[in-house]
Design a protein around this nucleic acid. Structure first.
Ligand SMILES: [Mn+2]
Ligand SMILES: [Mn+2]
Ligand SMILES: [Zn+2]
Ligand SMILES: [Zn+2]
Lengths: 151, 151
DNA sequence: TTTTTAATTGTGTACCATTATCAATAAAGT
DNA sequence: ACTTTATTGATAATGGTACACAATTAAAAA
């Protein structure tokens, strides 16, 4: 959960016998420059790149998203739509959580530093190496409460 | 997040114009009697019922799991295996969170009442009706840290 | 700089968890 | 009992994600 640069990404990849590719560098930059509150699915990322004239195959996108999540660079979010979303994983001043309406998928981000602290402590106590810590609140938003019945 | 009985389930279903069926009653009982720490996927539940001589179609199982999660009766858990798991949703003395190894999927449950309190407060502040509040810690377990490299 | 090694990519294909369809069934209210 | 319509079960369809493999290419060695 530290801020990555191209150089530090390359260093960490090489350390594990892996390689820094233009595709990986591009994807990291996309997420680093993504406006706060945006979350990208694999398809989202594919089309965003496409709209910028760059092309990275969907296979590589899926592989890279998974890789970076496993490295702790990206957060994998289940925003209740049948597919995963990703965002950059940043430490305390930017770290946040998600309040999700299970009916319309409206998502609100909120901050709470003590949750990250407690998560960090729990992981440490069990000897786990922390990658991501996210509180997910499943709920029904005001609008969906008023529009009654439909599940 | 209250304890359901067959009667209260029927009441809440009927109130919405829905029906209590034997299948729904059976599935609720399965989850209520499930030992602490167990999480069932749709397939798990299907085979568990099968082993008890009861049969509920996979379609109905998927529909019921989704329905009960939307009602706040069950918690929908993403335990990093490509399919969802479910457990009963209970209030404070039993409420807990999950620490998950992203490599081997080993999962540890832990309690922390202040997280539920903060989640409840956040939902209320935004006018959301709370269904579930779960802290997910993605990490690498001690065993997987020693077995280096593989993603 | 050139060579060597093997990680990575892109194309195509396969998988499989979950949802949709729809006729038959059966809760719930009258 | 009768009516209404939510629900079920069997089947097919969907779609997100992973896999296979030959062609590239990053990184280390020479
Ligand atoms: Mn976010
Ligand atoms: Mn649990
Ligand atoms: Zn909503
Ligand atoms: Zn592990």
């Amino acid at each position: 959960m530290t801020a990555y640069t191209t150089t530090s990404l390359k260093a960490e990849l090489n350390e594990r016998g892996w390689r820094l590719t233009p595709q990986r560098e591009t994807i990291l930059q996309i997420f680093q420059n993504l406006p706060k509150g945006n979350h990208l699915s694999a398809e989202d990322l594919y089309h965003l790149l496409e709209s910028q004239g760059e092309t990275i195959s969907l296979s590589t996108i899926y592989r890279t998203l998974k890789l970076m999540a496993r490295m702790g660079i990206l957060r994998e979010l289940e925003l209740a739509e049948g597919h995963k979303h990703y965002e950059i994983n940043q430490p305390s001043p930017y770290h946040h959580h998600h309040l999700i309406c299970v009916r319309c998928n409206k998502t609100i981000e909120f901050k709470n530093d003590s949750i990250l602290r407690m998560g960090t402590k729990t992981a440490k106590k069990e000897g786990y190496h922390l990658l991501d810590c996210q509180l997910i609140i499943h709920a029904v938003c005001p609008a969906c409460q008023r529009a009654l019945l439909p599940i």
